[in-house]
């Protein structure tokens, strides 16, 4: 019994320590990104742009391809159900709304968590192990300012962009299926999508993508900074950064979807 309590207590403490660590890191990053520039200590835009290319631009092919496939699959599954009611006309609406509100941001976030979140953890973890982070601090350069803030800014800019690309690719995938199977023209698909979508569908998706971007950066960087021990530690941090961020992304997705649903 005491063992169970001790186990629970230790894990609860560990959980809160983790939260505290993430809060500290986020507060520092927010300071260097939004407060310090007004004190004449500017953001390292060079690094940020480098990160935007690595995390954003280089992810465009994989995000578009996956979203295209998801669009096709949505079209197929939607048509399978809607055909029973003779309502295949609504397949376009189904694809458009689910991509923009839900799957575009989610798919993008999961791909980026696997691609960039893990890269953040591995990069910072390796730097930690090889004393590079200590060396930065020893020079009086703030590691959060140099290493974390550029990643935050890159993600805040690139996640919405990638999500829009994913939305478009998904809608295109749905349209491809409809043109092949349901004898629609591309123009019909476009106008049906335009009819079905309202601005709110897209904006809620973009808000989600910003939150997901924050989660990926926070977890990736925090895991990287907390690496202990050599290469094995880096591997562990990389794995747990992906697992934890995907979990938190889906949790946040539930919360935000509920909020958007009830405030409609």
């Amino acid at each position: 019994m005491t063992a169970v309590l001790a186990f629970l207590g230790r894990n609860t403490l560990g959980f809160f320590r983790y939260l505290g660590g993430i809060y500290d890191l986020s507060a520092k990053a927010a300071y260097w990104a939004f407060v310090a520039p007004f004190k004449g200590r500017y953001v390292k835009w060079g690094n940020a742009i480098h990160q935007m290319v690595a995390a954003g631009v280089d992810s465009i092919p994989i995000v578009s391809l996956i979203s295209l496939f998801i669009g096709i699959v949505l079209g197929l599954q939607g048509a399978y159900q809607l055909a029973k009611f003779g309502a295949t006309y609504f397949v376009t609406a189904l694809v458009g709304v689910s991509m923009t509100r839900e799957l575009g941001p989610l798919i993008t976030a999961i791909v980026i968590a696997g691609r960039s979140g893990s890269a953040f953890a591995a990069e910072l973890g390796t730097m930690k192990v090889s004393e590079e982070i200590d060396a930065l601090e020893a020079m009086g350069l703030d590691s959060v300012r140099y290493l974390v803030v550029p990643k935050y800014l890159a993600m805040l800019v690139m996640m919405p962009c990638l999500t829009l690309i994913s939305d478009l690719a998904g809608i295109l995938g749905g349209a491809l299926f409809e043109m092949a199977q349901l004898d629609k023209t591309f123009a019909m698909c476009l106008s049906a999508t335009q009819d079905a979508l309202v601005m709110r569908d897209i904006t809620t998706g973009l808000i989600k993508s910003l939150v997901f971007g924050l989660i990926i950066t926070k977890i990736g960087c925090y895991e990287g900074f907390s690496v202990r021990g050599g290469a094995e530690g880096v591997g562990k941090a990389t794995t747990s950064s992906v697992v934890i961020s995907i979990f938190l992304i889906i949790l946040a997705d539930v919360i935000f979807t509920a909020i958007f649903y009830f405030t409609n």
């Binding site: 390796t126 730097m127 090889s130 004393e131 590079e132 200590d134 060396a135 020893a138």
Partner: peptide, 12 residues
């Protein structure tokens, strides 16, 4: 203060 780390800690 300058410091030389055990692994040299150059930025790779």
């Amino acid at each position: 203060i300058g410091m030389l780390f055990q692994s040299a800690a150059l930025f790779n």
